[in-house]
Amino acid sequence: MSGTMNITLKVWRQAGPTAPGGFEEYKAPGISPDMSFLEMLDVVNERLIEGGKDPIAFDHDCREGICGMCGLMINGSAHGPSKLTTTCQLHMRSFKDGDYITIEPWRAKAFPVLRDLVVDRGPLDRIIQAGGFVSVATGSPQDANALPIGKLEADEAMDAAACIGCGACVAACPNASVSLFTAAKISHLGLLPQGQPERYRRALHMVAQMDLEGFGGCTLFGECMEACPKGISIDFIKRMHGDYIWGAVTEKPEKVALGSG
């Protein structure tokens, strides 16, 4: 593709977590359609710095769609208009000359803005801490092939495990619910034999943590699945609910073992 385009940006600017924020408009002429969206922001930032202004802060790292660090609300949709695409993999050829692009940070009480378009996604780590793991310590587990796992089960677990933790599901959800993220991890581990012993306990603890962090509940709008750059299915939310219900029904009090040692 040849030729460049001129676009106008409307960007959320906020100096710090407690500072008031607001939108500012920037002209971005001479943008190549081969640029990624973040490269376009790089260009805008270079011009801002040269003009003596503060550049726009935004999170990014790998720029190949896997680290989950980037994430912007672009024209009202999380990660912008292309399906199955992170912000860093969105290219300017998805826009046209003269476009007016609104850029906002992820909005949720649980994701406070740190600066401009950068938010704190700490709650996602804390949800994993609540049970998103298999409790095995480094050591000498059995031989990897001693535990056969059907290809289809492994594939389905992989579908869930593909989550990159970007938070687009929260951003896109009208309820600011984190169900898709939480369900993806519960399902990844719950679908595998390694995850069975802790399966229901995990679901109970992770759901409790996501509520504690102040996310909204799931009403199955389906927006999360559409926004997810890895196409994670809301079927996993259903699975999380099933595990949660079974866990709640069969929950036993955790006893403290006495007399050991």
């Binding site: 009208p174 309820n175 996310f215």
Partner: peptide, 26 residues
């Protein structure tokens, strides 16, 4: 649950486009 959802996003988006959610769900 509605109250929780409203609390979960204290600052609204200036622009948000529904993608796949149905009129019924909204």
């Amino acid at each position: 649950l509605t109250r929780r959802s409203w609390d979960a996003r204290p600052v609204a988006y200036a622009l948000r486009e529904a993608q796949v959610s149905t009129y019924a769900s909204r």
